[in-house]
């Protein structure tokens, strides 16, 4: 049990938040003072900050914008950089954070994605990567065609952890090889043109650990295997697996403890064979 909860430490604590009013604008730090309550997590801190709408020095400020949904660490929405590390705000417990760093809690938006406002970032590149790797089982359709392929318990036990990936982006934010792409719309550019340009840029940038792991997941599925070659080709295309620098932060920060580096190594082996196949069999 945390000492803070037990000892009833100071009544309030400070939160330092890196804010930004809109995309492309400059960011600034703002301090907030929050009353301490038992069992607080960063989400409840944000709720108090929003309700109070006042900075620590009593100045009225707009509520800090942030993203969240399930608050149970299964939806992946509330990723932010808390005390320097990308993690989920819902499982970041205040008492533990104050144990780590007693003076204050520091909140920043994710560093590898364009900021929309305050702690809200645009993670569309992350989802786009799932399309790039064809992250689905290519079924004939949703008509009743009987049960799926039989799978051993062992296969399920390998696949299940990978399929728990909730696209939170922690692995990407912590990855030294995954670098931020922030485009600004041109003066005469329509929203659709801008979106298309963004997509095109994302398509040649690093996929990231989550998408590599999804590739491995679908390539190991009995039906998903059908597209295995195509998926490997994507891993071997621009921005593919080769960008990985084996820093292995992905696996260390993954809140769901998904064996991402195992997936990366499996993808490495598969692409090695794919390379030989391309040279000697085609």
């Amino acid at each position: 049990m945390s000492d803070h909860a037990a000892n009833g430490h100071s009544d309030s604590f400070e939160v330092r938040i890196l804010r930004q009013d809109a995309p492309g604008e400059s960011s600034y730090w703002e301090r907030h003072r929050v009353e301490h309550e038992p069992d607080m997590n960063v989400i409840s801190v944000m709720q108090r900050v929003a309700a109070r709408a006042q900075s620590a020095d009593g100045k009225p400020v707009a509520p800090v914008a942030w993203d969240c949904n399930c608050l149970e660490e299964v939806c992946g929405a509330c990723t932010m950089v808390i005390n320097g590390q990308a993690r989920q705000a819902c499982t970041a417990l205040v008492d533990k954070l104050l144990d780590e760093q007693p003076a204050e809690i520091e909140l920043q938006p994710m560093q590898k994605f364009p900021v929309l406002r305050d702690l809200v970032v645009d993670r569309s590149r992350l989802f786009r990567a799932l399309t790039r790797v064809k992250g689905w089982v290519p079924v004939d359709g949703s008509y009743d065609l009987g049960p799926g392929p039989r799978q051993s318990r062992t296969e399920q036990e390998v696949a299940y952890p990978l399929s728990q990936c909730m696209s939170c982006g922690c692995c990407l934010d912590a990855c030294p090889q995954y670098t931020k792409i922030e485009l600004t719309p041109g003066v005469d550019e329509s929203a659709a043109d801008f979106a298309a340009r963004q997509e095109q840029t994302h398509d040649s940038a690093f996929l990231g650990a989550h998408a590599i792991s999804q590739t491995v997941l679908f390539n190991s599925h009995p039906t998903g295997k059908v597209n295995a070659g195509e998926r490997l080709d994507v891993l071997m295309d621009e921005g593919g697996l080769q960008i990985c620098g084996n820093a292995q932060n992905c696996v260390a920060v993954c809140p769901k403890e998904i064996p991402l580096t195992t997936s990366i190594a499996r993808a490495g082996r598969a692409t090695t064979f794919r390379l030989l196949e391309r040279w000697f069999e085609k």
Partner: peptide, 11 residues
Amino acid sequence: AYRYTSNIRYS
């Protein structure tokens, strides 16, 4: 920021 052994090795 991320003081993991493999990350230090990366650097």
